[in-house]
């Protein structure tokens, strides 16, 4: 399968992929700690963006509640670690289970009762906000004052417990991003991927052609929410603090999707490219407006830039770059 993907890609695309991968692998040795911290956030958004894109970009189901899956993954693994000493390498399975169960519950309600499009998106928002309110009242999880992971001075990196240096977190999220990319590329070029795209394009026509809509939409939600939940585990152990009032918010969900929207919904490189454009852009604007006591200015310019990109490249940046760089494959395969 990997062989098929490589075979169907153009030499230029493969060269580009190799260069980018190599650069990312050695980046921690070349950049200072500030740039590294930005790269870490870039990769986090590339990862969760990829997971979200699987649902809308591949299967055509719009979620505006992916913060729920991040939060469930984060809270589950963090609580298991803090309260019971369960290491995240084990807690991750519970985290995935929580996210997938929530995703399947939302999916079941939406798909069984034919709640489509924006109404489905509203359902995802409702679940995320609602769960946030519940967690806000569970004192065992720190309620509104937040859940904190113990931060000790680490002598060495402890991968199993996800305790260590930013460089370790960088490589973990890089590995996750690479894994999500490989998985999505494999899925997209499989029966599952073709069925998803058929559903995305025209679900009645897909159904008439033998596609069981409910089953394939549920698979999409399950994989997307599970992947996102894994991102939540990383998030909890990287940031060490979780607050319901920010975690479950729709603004978090929007941040997850914006990279894909800017990079190109439905493409494999879109979420990654989008994260590499948006996160640094936000950082630059923060730096530029630093000390100016103009709180709204950053958000305004950021929104302005995003709107401009979406306006001038409505398909996202990736399809455009793809053409400009001449990365078209010999045949078949997905970009």
């Amino acid at each position: 399968m990997i062989a098929r993907v490589i075979e169907s890609a153009s030499p230029r695309a493969l060269a580009l992929l190799a260069v980018v991968t190599a650069a990312l692998l050695i980046a921690p040795y070349l950049v200072d700690s500030y740039v590294l911290s930005v790269l870490i956030i870039v990769l986090y958004f590339a990862y969760v963006g990829q997971a979200w894109n699987l649902m809308l970009g591949f299967a055509g189901q719009l979620s505006l509640g992916h913060a729920l899956f991040v939060s469930l993954g984060a809270y589950t693994s963090a609580a298991l670690f803090i309260k019971f000493g369960v290491p995240p390498v084990i807690g991750i399975f519970a985290a995935i289970a929580m996210a997938v169960v929530a995703g399947c519950l939302i999916g079941y309600l939406g798909f069984r009762f034919s709640i489509r499009g924006v109404y489905f998106a509203l359902l995802t928002i409702a679940f995320a906000e609602f769960t946030g309110i519940i967690v806000d009242h569970i004192s065992w999880l720190g309620a509104s004052s937040g859940l904190f992971l113990p931060v000790k001075n680490q002598q060495s990196n402890d991968l199993l417990n996800l305790r260590g240096s930013p460089t370790m977190f960088y490589y973990v999220i890089l590995a996750l991003t690479g894994f999500a990319f490989a998985l999505c590329s494999w899925l997209l070029n499989s029966k599952l991927g073709l069925y998803w795209q058929a559903i995305r394009e025209d679900q009645e026509a897909a159904e008439a052609s033998g596609v069981p809509l409910f089953r394939y939409k549920m698979i999409a939600v399950a994989i997307s929410s599970g992947l996102t939940g894994i991102g939540g585990v990383w998030y909890a152990f990287y940031y060490n603090n979780l607050f319901p009032e920010t975690m479950f918010k729709t603004s978090q969900s929007v941040e997850i999707i914006l990279g894909s929207v800017v990079g190109g919904v439905g493409t494999l490189f879109g979420p990654i490219l989008g994260a590499f454009v948006l996160t640094p852009l936000g950082e630059i604007l923060t730096a530029a407006t630093d000390g100016m006591h103009l709180d709204g200015v950053k958000s305004f310019f950021w929104g302005f830039c995003v709107a401009a990109i979406v306006l001038f490249r409505p398909q996202g940046l990736w399809p455009w770059i793809y053409d400009v760089l001449g990365l078209a494959p010999k045949k078949e395969g997905k970009r």
Binding site: S190, K191, L194, A198, E201, A206, S209, G210, V211, G266
Partner: peptide, 27 residues
Amino acid sequence: RPFNELTLVENVAVGALAWTDDLAEAR
């Protein structure tokens, strides 16, 4: 009601997947 973003082969392969799980065979 074609699948607009898919090639003709992919459009028709969706139909063939009704009786095979092998995407190469469907194509």
